[in-house]
Simulated scan of single mutants.
Amino acid sequence: MTSFSAATVDTLPIARHLDRLSALAALDGRRVIDVGCGDGALVRALARRGAAMTGIEIDARALAPALAAPLVADERYLEGRAEALPLGDASVDVVLFFNSLHHVPVDLLARALHEAARVLVPDGRLLVVEPIAAGGYFELTRLVEDETFVRAKAYEALGRATDYGLTAVAEETYRNPLVFKDYTAFEARLAAVDPARAPMIERHRAELRAAFEVAAEQTPDGYRFHQPTRANLFRKS
């Protein structure tokens, strides 16, 4: 496992999440769970690419946006937590944490990785995609919530994956392009990640708006950022 220097952010290759997910884990035809699926956008995108998708969120409120969206294939959604997955032993081919492992409480990270290993079939894959705490987009969002500590702890936990019968296969870093129509769209995304952020967003709105205008690259499609990302792939031994 390697550390990451913020000074190298601008040298990372640009790639889109969906392309890297598909390349790393060969998801077509696989039984995949997206732990912390949010509004289900990734579940639907991967279902369109042929994966048999299950999205997992902590409660009915969190799942409501995903359940409200029209089905695109045979995707389904379940209530559950990373540290107590609502699935049987050896029942899925791929466990995916997409920008979600650092939202697991630090004292439950080990249990979450143990659960991922439990539900994987032999030779199954765990794919963890996490934003790196560096770069212009991170500096903007940390005005609302500084995730430096929790992201570091999530990465540290991956360094102990062998404790749960998981073998490291690959690690790669890249920059994913993020485009927002305007500041309002950016704020909506920021709040959707965690509704508890709403008071901080309101308190810092003027500062956020000003920083957004400075940090973003203006393009014909909107305001663009490149979010540095780390993807770690593991195999169940």
Rank of each mutant, 00 (worst) to 15 (best):
T173C: 13
A68P: 07
R30P: 01
Y223H: 13
A110H: 07
D28V: 12
L113D: 00
D34K: 03
L85Q: 04
Q218I: 08
A117W: 00
Y183L: 08
R48N: 09
I201K: 07
L113Y: 03
I132F: 06
F234M: 03
A68Q: 14
N99Y: 07
I33V: 15
D163I: 06
A52V: 02
A191D: 10
A7W: 04
A134Y: 06
L96S: 01
G29W: 03
E171F: 03
L178E: 11
L71V: 07
I56V: 15
I14Q: 15
A82H: 00
R125I: 01
L109S: 01
A62S: 05
E213K: 12
A73W: 05
P13R: 11
R235M: 01
R175E: 04
P199A: 12
L21N: 01
A168G: 07
P220M: 13
V214D: 12
A66P: 04
R142F: 11
G165P: 03
A51Y: 00
A188K: 05
L42M: 12
A211L: 15
T167K: 02
Y223V: 12
G124I: 00
L24K: 07
S100E: 12
D194A: 06
A84F: 10
L166V: 05
A47D: 01
E147A: 15
G38H: 07
E202P: 03
L101N: 01
H114R: 05
S91H: 08
A60N: 14
D221V: 14
E115L: 06
A185F: 03
D194R: 11
Y77T: 05
F180N: 08
Y77L: 05
V106Y: 05
Q227V: 09
L208E: 04
R142Q: 15
S91C: 11
Y77R: 09
L143C: 08
A112Q: 03
H17N: 13
E145G: 12
H226G: 09
F149H: 15
A110Y: 05
P13Y: 10
E75Y: 02
L27T: 07
Y223K: 08
R49G: 04
D89F: 07
R44M: 01
L208W: 04
S237M: 07
V92P: 00
R230P: 02
F212E: 02
R118E: 07
I56C: 09
A15D: 05
